[in-house]
Structures are given as C-alpha cells and as structure tokens.
Design a protein around this nucleic acid. Sequence first.
DNA 1: CGACATGATTCTAA
DNA 2: TTAGAATCATGTCG
Length: 336
Amino acid sequence: MVGTNLTSLNDLLAEVMKINGQTLEDIDNQKKQALSCHPMRPALFNVLCEVKEKTSLSIRTGVDETPEDPQLMRLDNMLVAEGVAGPDKGVPLAGDASGGDQADYRQKLLHIRQVYNEELRKYEDACAEFTQHVRSLLKDQSILRPINHKEIERMVCIIQKKFSGIQVQLKQSTCEAVMILRSRFLDARRKRRNFSKQATEVLNEYFYSHLSNPYPSEEAKEELARQCNITVSQVSNWFGNKRIRYKKNIAKAQEEANMYAAKKAAAHGLGGMAASYGILPGASAGILNPYPGMLPGQDLSHMGMSSAFDLSAYNPQLMAQYQHQHQQQSNLEEKP
DNA sequence: CGACATGATTCTAA
DNA sequence: TTAGAATCATGTCG
C-alpha cells in the first residue's frame, strides 16, 4: 500500500480539499467527473464511512428543533403592530389629535418600512442562495463521502439559524428606529398647544348652554370641531376635561357659567334670557344665585332626575374653598 | 422659577 | 365603547 496508490490518494484528497475550500464556487463538471471516476474513490468512500461510524457524527439529527424563538416573535409582533411589517395600514397610533406631523411621521415610518423590507429581502435572497449552494455542494460531495439527506437538512437548518440571527439583528435595529421615531412623535403629539381664544369661547358657550346635558352628539362635535378648527377628538377631550373639572370646581365654574350665560343674554338682548337664567350680567353669581347648589344653565328643567350630568358630587365646602382661591377668575372677560 | 391652567393620555368600570 | 378619573406634560402668568 505504498507508491502510486499513495500518490493517487493524495491527489484525490487534494481535490477534495479543493472542493471544501471552494465553498461557494461552482465546480466544474469536469472536475466532478474526474473525482467520481477516480480509481480510489470507492476506497476513500469506505474509509470515510468507517470514520463516520466511529465518530458517530450521524446520530445527532433533528434533536434541537428551533423552539420558536420568543425574542424573534416579540420583534415580529412589534414590527407588525408598528406598521413596519405586515400590510401597509394607516397611521396606527391612537387618537388623531395632532394634525401636521402625522404626515411627517407616516413618511418616516414608510422609509423605515422600505429599508427594512429591502434588507429583509436581501437577507432572504442571500440565505436562499447560500443554502442552495451548500446543498449542491454537499450533494456533490456525497459521491466522495457519506452524507445522508438528514445531514444536509441539518446543515441547511444551521445555515438558516445563522441567517435568522442576522435577521434578528435587523429587526432589532428596526424596532429601535421605530421606537425612537415613535417616542419623538409622541413627544410632539404631547406638545400641547392651547386652543385659540375663539375656540375656547365656542366650546364654553356650548358647554354652558347645555349644562344639564353637556354631551354633544357626534354631529354637534363635528360642528364644534369645524367652528373651532380642531379635531373631533379634541372636542371630545375638551368636553371630557371640562365636565370633570367643572364638577371638581363648581364655584369657579359657576362664575364662568354666569359669564357665558350673561354673554349670551347680552347677545340676545337682556330681556328674556338673563331673566330665565335667574342671573344678571356682571354680578357675582355665587352670591346672587339664590340656589347655591344649583347651577345656571339653559335646561334647568332637566336638572332633576333626568340629567345625565349628575352633580351630586357637589360639595358646598368645596365651593367656599375655591371661592377665595380663584378670585381673579373672571377678569379675562369683557375685552371690547 | 413655581403655581396653576389646560390639552392629551391612560386606566378603570359599566 | 365611552365616561370619568387620575395623571402627564406643556403653556402661561406673576
């Protein structure tokens, strides 16, 4: 077992090593042909079979299936939720309070989406391509050494794991980008701008002339939104805030109520309105109002049982407490 | 700068 | 889903 046999075996091994080193390179059919016809091929094959058996490399197959990486799932869910992955939905954020920067946000999100999808596709392509190469490589090698189907699959599995690792990185950094964008947008959204004086005026007028039932219908909200040049949700927010704060601070609100009632009365001529409200313009209503627990409003008749705006929370002590606390309250009134 | 006003958000309960 | 309540965060005024 010396001499030419040895040299030809060396030749063969050299060829095999060349293949291993070439990984992604295509192998000439010529070379393949040469290898498979090589006189020493069957012998080498058998030796490798033996080695394989001894080292029992083949036992380990398909034991460790990917257990649905929770981290990857989390990332995926988040990306879908943020509108980066999945269908291109509209702006996924709750509320429509801010107007102008919506488009900005959308545009930036879209950009992230594009980059993300591009990269993802790149990785997928590369992965598929690489997998294909390895497959054919292993298949080619299988004529020289024992490789069964399962082992090829296992190798493919390993490759895909590696690539999915890269994908996780991509997804992670995309998530990060979205979070940064989102938080910035959220901050911007939270950046409150006070409504214009007129808008507040309109809203207050509505509120105090529907005091017994300050729940504008959807249509009313739309109308108010239009008048105030704000969104419907802003109107809803405003009324939500107004109701709760009104109840919390009856005394103060009462002055305000009187103010708006008076304004309205003035606008319609002093005659009927002011009289029917039981108040007088310019007067300190808290004092003049003969019904301390009662509030001025257009629909006083509803204030009993049928009023949805239950003022049972009213507390006379609170009133006293707030009366001196907010004395400068209604000094923002008439500025003719 | 501190206190209060105010629009927006979040959480809970019905 | 919605109202209410609590809370957040900024705007505003002295």
